[in-house]
Design a protein around this nucleic acid. Structure first.
Length: 1243
RNA sequence: GCUCGAGUGGUGGAAUUGGUAGACACGUUGGACUUAAAAUCCAAUGGACAUUAGUCCGUAUGGGUUCAAGUCCCAUCUCGAGUACCA
């Protein structure tokens, strides 16, 4: 019998399927083991040989673990939502579900024929409504959760609502939007339902927000950060722009620290952990608040120009021409500042009025004059109260007699929208007018007005003060005047180097920073606006590509250094990114190269604050060797201490605190696609999003006529005729717009459904848990199932998912853990990234010919051709251009010039002298004319299926494939011609055409894709499995070369022969005890058991294939036929080559004539047999072949018993004749003896 | 630029803790069998000199530690992956 792999493999695959051999039970006495592959996206192209690599590795491991007595779950499924099926739908109109189903069928067939031990009863498909029901359910759970920083976990939104209604939000420590105003319990309870919903949305873990997103116009959808590579879309490479859209987002940033910490608890590849760490991007430092100085705060002229400057009010403020950063700061006078603020007249200011100008513009000048008058003559009560309010004594800044609208109230706190009036006697007759004025201020201008009488102020200032304080702290007080935040005149920066704060000689804001317009002075306005426009024009990509160019603009504004109180200029520059930190930096040119370059470029001073460091050439960024100087209280300190002290001092000033910043942003969760999970969300009458009740899930994807966005630019679901939610009580359904509008409003719930769908990672972030109980219709999985299977023990997949799928899955696992659904907060204990299998492209080499007789170079070379010669050349070129293909060995150079190579034939031939000779030989008419032709060599991909193991081209197949070369001339490696005319007798006289080979990514366009179907048909699944493992280490990227498969295929044949040593290759094993032959067979077996076991545990599958080969070679040489050896061997091999192992096992157990269709009822396949146990006693050696080296160089070996002592070994070695020969009479200085290892003689 | 990983025959790759470098294969060359091919089997195969013995050189390069270095340390070069003005 010969090894008929096709028949064997088909039969046993059927046997496994029929018997559900690999079905895993959810309750078992055995220990569980969960082996998982990243489920594939079923693409139309089907599998190539690179795809199964990881599946084969995991399958070997799963089978091995079954042999080791584990209850192994090894499921498989499909990540079947996604773009390609949708693009195909757009092009052809075929529903993505149909495309997907077809592709899955192909995948399944291809997977089945490789013999995986998948438990297909657990298959999931993300696009199956029964599956995405639970994806929608998870979304609802996220919506109904918030992140409590105090307990450091996600909690039910109800706990938040309970706290709101009992205590307001003052003491809530949550991860939430940053624009939340504080409110009391009373406020909360007084809010309308809509207001409450709006507030809750700012806390939910998935929330609807206007976010700046990466919009890809070509794809018509937004992309997550991890879907963008080098500024263009990962799929298709389309440009991406920033755009504001209302989108669902996931508050993954809440988990930044835990995602980081969790990495220490899992056995994942370091590069993958590194890239997650990088992606999360934690940096520790401080946030520092800089006050922006107003014009009048500045003692000195801000601009570089000379001469006297005027402030906008026309008042001469300085004739001092010193640059501000060099000048001394003068003491600032707070009360002066307050007063002088109002002297700014907006009508002359040039730009937008400063935010504190609240007076009516038309009346402003008049009001201002009156206000000034009034300030000079305060009443006693006003003066007394001013003493309490001025200089921020109550934390909030008050202004007195400050014009507001048409009035001049006594005291105003603009930041808090609070007006304080002191009613003197004089006002008594004015009650009506005051009431009117209050109404206007409160209703129209949004101020709160509180009044005190003169008496109250004069007699009980304490209670007045208290009342003002209470009012100031009341959350009902507005947060300031609309668009201008209360801290508008402060700039917050994040820095990792607070120790270098005294080196900050300027500040830089991102051009997009919200304060830029506000602080820019009139003189600088033009500059700044021009710069902002210039940066806005540049695409993300340009900005990234061009990081060398330094650009920026001065705003004219200054900030106050928190410690030195010096004014420092505020610049804008596009090297500061709006999206990171606060979009502003304190620039320390001496300690940061970018700041340094910027300062150099714009001639900004670079103060040196490092001891003994030269910064004349570049910045000094080395933290470890830092000693701070010129920095007041930080002088002489090292980095760590200086950081601590700087933060401490900043905290004392209230201008900073230690802070940890993360790069990780919340994940945008909406996609404007059709082929994805619909959100279980409708929008009610007030426009607020509402979740569908769980019992209405799944909300199935609607049918649409076309898969493109609607004419109004809405996502494809906008095309659906029925996409309204209509619900009365317990009954709900999806209806058309008409049906909804015609339904009775009484008791009706519902509204239009969400038009976006979920992104690709939605369905893949918990699928590993769904496998545990995939058919459960009441829950995502049962408690019993999750508690039994717990988590994935081994996860194998590609590293390209490092910052996408794998990060989101960890995030969702932690969320599920917080909410008590899963027992583990990391879903996969161990993860391995399989490497990519690259293709080995094949090339033929075409000669491109060009008539060279007219060329200028010809004259330079001084060669002249006769008319006849020129004719001859022209004729030849015309006939043979692009028609001559030469064998690789004629191009005996590593340089293959392409068609652009134009420096003349001389260089071509100096590179390829062999080619020149051959051409002269084969085309005798050209013998003296070759100089007249410009020849360049062009590489062409040839389909790898035409290439044999020796890199020889099947010329006829190639010609059939590319008919344009039907009449081409092939010049073979022996210099012979092979062309249409030389057929059929010519045949190139034994020559062959050798192709060039290069490793490239496997791709259709490179014609180097190898289909596993072909391999399986020709060599069998077991050969494919073995060869994929044999190629090299699992994690490593390595090239596929089909030729090499003969090695492992030959091994399988040898293995077969070992069991078929009978007459005519009949199956034969002997029951005689082992070691009857050479006595070495047990040693061979146990050596193999040991090595294979170690290899599998270490995922070193390539070396165990070698081990099998060695084992079979040895047993063959030993003529082993012993059942005691061959049975364990079959088990050892079975994880790798399960089909042949199953067959041999059946022969061993039932005899070679067993009937596949009628196996004994109690027959157990090889997969259910225990793994052989390694017994060290078989490997005990009595002697060792010692390498004897001299000065570390091995010279010869000698066999010595292992039980010799060091001294005995030394004596034996020294006595050896070869030792004496090596020493040539010298006496060794030293003899190193390592028993059982080596002897080294020094001297 | 930064972070990580890797450089070993013609090729894929072995060498788990420093201890016989190149296991196991592919390819190549020679041979056997065959009308021939395929298949199979045998032998050789890091390089150089010698070709009988043997000698020297060899794990990207240059240093170092050690009785002994592919393996450990330092520097340099090259390639790959990730990331990128992250303050």
């Amino acid at each position: 019998m010969h090894y008929n792999f096709n028949e064997i493999e088909a039969k046993w695959q059927k046997y496994w399927a029929d018997n559900q051999t690999f079905k895993a039970e959810n309750n078992s006495d055995k220990e569980k083991f969960y082996v998982l592959d990243m489920f594939p996206y079923p693409s139309g192209a089907g599998l190539h040989v690179g795809h199964p690599l990881g599946y084969i590795a995991s399958d070997i491991y799963a089978r091995y673990k079954r042999h080791k007595g584990f209850n192994v779950m090894h499921p498989q499924g499909y990540d079947s939502f996604g773009l390609p099926a949708e693009q195909y739908a757009i092009q052809t109109g075929q529903h993505p579900a149909i495309t997907t189903a077809e592709n899955i069928k192909t995948y399944r067939r291809q997977l089945d024929q490789i013999g995986f031990s998948f438990d297909w009863s657990r298959e999931v498909r993300t696009s199956d409504p029964k599956y995405y029901k639970w994806t929608q359910w998870i979304f609802i759970q996220l919506f109904n959760s918030w992140y409590n920083k105090d307990s450091d976990k996600a909690e039910d939104i109800e706990t938040l609502i309970a706290t709101f209604s009992s205590d307001g939000n003052a003491n809530i420590n949550a991860v939430c939007d940053d624009d939340i105003e504080s409110f009391s319990a009373a406020d909360w309870n007084a809010f309308s339902n809509k207001e409450q919903q709006e507030i809750l949305l700012k806390y939910r873990l998935t929330y609807l927000a206007d976010t700046e997103v990466n919009w890809c116009p070509s794809l018509g959808t937004v992309l997550a950060n991890d879907e963008i590579v080098n500024g263009v879309s990962e799929r298709g490479g389309h440009p991406v722009i920033r755009k504001k859209m209302t989108q669902w987002s996931m508050r993954i940033s809440a988990y930044a620290q835990r995602l980081l910490d969790g990495l220490n608890t899992i056995d994942w590849p370091q590069p993958l952990k590194d890239s997650q760490t990088n992606w999360i991007g934690r940096s520790q430092g401080a946030s520092v608040t800089f006050k922006v100085l107003t014009q009048t705060d500045l003692p000195l002229t801000p601009s570089q120009g000379g001469g006297t400057e005027r402030n906008p009010s026309g008042q001469v403020i300085s004739d001092n021409n010193q640059a501000p950063s060099q000048g001394k700061g003068t003491e600032r006078n707070q009360s002066n500042q307050s007063d002088s603020d109002v002297t700014v007249n907006p009508s002359q200011g040039g730009g937008a009025a400063p935010h504190y100008v609240t007076g009516d513009a038309d009346l402003y000048a008049m009001l201002l004059d009156r206000a000034k008058e009034m300030r000079k003559n305060p009443t006693a009560a006003e003066a007394k109260l001013w003493e309490v309010l001025r200089d921020k004594k109550l934390e909030s800044k008050f202004r007195r007699q400050h014009p507001v609208y048409k009035y001049i109230p006594d005291f105003v706190c603009i930041e808090k929208n609070l007006i304080i009036e002191v009613d003197g006697d004089i006002h008594d007759y004015q009650v009506d007018e005051d009431a009117q004025r209050q109404l206007v201020l409160e209703e129209k201008k949004g101020f709160k007005v509180i009044r005190f009488t003169n008496n109250e102020v004069l007699n009980d200032i304490e209670s007045v003060k208290q009342k003002i304080e209470t009012t100031l702290n009341s959350p009902s007080l507005g947060g300031g005047r609309g668009e201008v935040p209360s801290d508008a005149r402060e700039i917050e920066v994040f820095t990792t180097r607070p120790d270098t704060i005294f080196g900050a000689s300027f500040m830089t804001l991102a051009p997009e920073h919200e304060l830029v317009a506000e602080i820019t002075t009139a003189e600088q306005k033009a500059d700044v606006e021009a710069y902002i426009q210039a940066t806005a024009k540049r695409s993300e990509r340009d900005r990234m590509a061009d990081v060398k160019t330094i650009s920026g603009a001065f705003t004219g504004a200054y900030a106050e250094h928190p410690f030195s109180k010096e004014p420092i200029p505020i610049w804008i520059g596009d090297y500061v990114l709006a999206g990171y930190g606060t979009g502003a930096v304190m620039s320390v040119p001496c300690g940061d190269q970018r700041d340094y370059d910027f300062a150099k470029h714009f001639d900004i001073p670079i103060p040196n604050i490092f001891e003994g460091v030269d910064i004349s050439e570049e910045a000094f960024a080395d933290k470890d060797n830092t000693v701070i100087a010129n920095s007041d209280f930080l002088n002489g300190l090292k980095y760590k201490k200086a950081v601590k002290l700087a933060i401490y001092e900043l905290e004392k000033l209230g201008q900073g605190k230690g802070k940890i910043n993360y790069r990780l942003r919340d994940a945008v969760f909406s996609r404007q696609r059709y082929w994805g999970e619909p959100f279980p969300v409708y929008y009610d009458e007030s426009g607020m999003p509402q979740m569908l009740n769980k019992k209405f899930l799944p909300l199935a994807l609607p049918e649409v006529d076309k898969y493109l966005p609607t004419e109004t630019g809405e996502p494809p679901l906008g095309n659906a005729k029925k996409w309204y939610w209509l619900q009365y009580g317990e009954e709900g359904k999806v209806v058309s717009k008409e049906e909804f509008e015609n339904s009775s409003p009484s008791g009706r719930l519902g509204g239009d459904l969400e038009l976006n769908t979920m992104p690709g990672w939605a369905g893949s972030s918990q699928y590993f848990n769904r496998y545990m109980d995939p058919h459960n219709e009441d829950a995502i999985f049962s408690e019993e199932a999750i508690n039994y299977w717990q988590d994935v023990d081994l996860y194998i997949g590609g590293s390209e998912h490092a910052t996408g799928h794998l990060l989101y899955s960890r995030f969702l696992q932690k969320f599920m853990f917080d909410r008590g659904y899963v027992p583990k907060d990391e879903f996969a204990k161990k993860l391995i990234n399989q490497g990519m299998i690259t293709g080995t492209s094949a090339f033929v080499f075409r000669l491109d010919l060009k008539d060279y007789t007219d060329s200028l170079d010809k004259l330079v070379q001084g060669r002249k051709y006769s008319k006849e010669e020129e004719e001859e050349i022209k004729k030849f070129v015309q006939k043979n251009n692009n028609k001559i293909l030469v064998s690789k060995n004629l191009l005996n150079s590593e340089i293959y010039p392409n068609s652009d190579f134009g420096s003349g034939q001389l260089q071509v031939f100096s590179n390829f002298p062999k080619l020149e000779n051959v051409l002269k030989l084969r085309f005798p008419e050209l013998k003296n004319l070759l100089d007249g032709i410009l020849i360049s060599v062009v590489k062409l991909h040839a389909n790898v299926s035409f290439i044999n193991a020796s890199n020889e081209l099947d010329i006829e197949a190639f010609k059939n494939w590319l008919p344009e070369y039907k009449d081409a001339v092939f010049i073979l490696n022996n210099g012979e011609k092979y062309d249409a005319s030389s057929l059929p007798l010519g045949e190139g006289r034994g020559g062959v055409y050798t192709v060039g080979r290069e490793v490239e990514k496997m791709s259709k366009s490179k014609y180097n894709v190898v289909n596993p179907d072909d391999i399986v048909a020709e060599y069998g699944a077991d050969s494919l499995r073995l060869y994929e493992m044999f190629l090299g280490p699992l994690e490593q990227s390595k090239p596929w070369n089909t030729a090499g498969i003969t090695g492992v295929h030959g091994f399988l044949k040898k293995l077969w022969k070992l069991y078929h040593s009978g007459e005519n290759g009949a199956f034969h094993v002997s029951d005689s005890p082992p070691s009857e032959g050479s006595g070495e067979d047990l040693k061979t077996l146990h050596k193999t058991i040991k090595k294979v076991e170690e290899d599998i545990e270490n995922f070193s599958f390539n070396t165990s294939v070698s081990t099998f080969m060695i084992c079979v070679n040895e047993l063959t040489a030993q003529k082993c036929t012993s059942r005691a050896i061959l049975e364990p061997l079959a088990i050892l091999v079975s994880p790798y080559a399960p089909h042949i192992a199953e067959y041999l096992w059946a022969c061993l157990k039932l005899g070679a004539d067993f009937n596949m269709d009628n196996l004994p009822a109690d027959y157990k396949g090889i997969s259910q047999v225990d793994f052989p146990v390694f017994e060290p006693k078989h490997l005990v050696e009595s002697s060792k072949e010692y390498p004897i080296s001299f000065n570390g160089k091995m010279r010869f070996t000698m066999e010595l018993p292992l039980d010799l002592s060091k001294e005995e070994i030394e004596a034996a070695v020294m006595a050896h004749e070869k030792t004496q020969q090596q020493l040539q009479g010298r006496t060794p200085k030293k003899v190193i003896v390592v028993p059982g290892k080596i002897v080294n003689i020094v001297g």
